[in-house]
């Protein structure tokens, strides 16, 4: 399973990278959300999968899955949400103010002379 997940994560990273390299701001933001999915899955995978019952005491199981990566992922998910929300707003604000969502047109080299 971990091996499969490694490949899934790889594919998620791949498409996230591709999206982040594209021109459109919307795609870039989508890329970051997909990136965070990949990251979270990877973190979970690295903790070891299916190591036992869900980490709830009283599951009368002999072993539990590692709860620590789950807690870390939870933190990471919430942070990623905050960042995505902000990024989204920045994206649309900048589209309104600058009039384009094309990153190629957003070069701007102030002070480069």
């Amino acid at each position: 399973m971990e091996i499969l997940m490694a490949f899934v994560v790889g594919i998620l990273f791949m498409s996230a990278t591709y999206l982040m390299l594209s021109r459109s701001v919307v795609r870039i933001i989508l890329g970051t959300t997909i990136l965070s999915h990949g990251v979270h899955l990877l973190l979970l995978t690295m903790g070891g999968l299916k190591g036992g019952a869900a980490p709830l005491v009283g599951e009368n199981a002999s072993s539990y899955t590692d709860p620590l990566p789950q807690a870390l992922i939870l933190t990471a998910i919430v942070i990623a949400f905050g960042v995505t929300a902000l990024f989204l707003v920045v994206g649309y604000r900048s589209y309104k103010v600058l009039g384009t969502d094309n990153m190629e047109k957003l070069r701007g080299n102030e002070g480069n002379d």
Partner: peptide, 30 residues
Amino acid sequence: YHLPKKLTEDPLSFKVRNAIISVGVGAVVT
């Protein structure tokens, strides 16, 4: 509501370059 309707597309050469880079990233991570 505030964003453009269409997603801007890249020319093919960029797509190829980006594809190579992304595949590389994915492979390395895996």
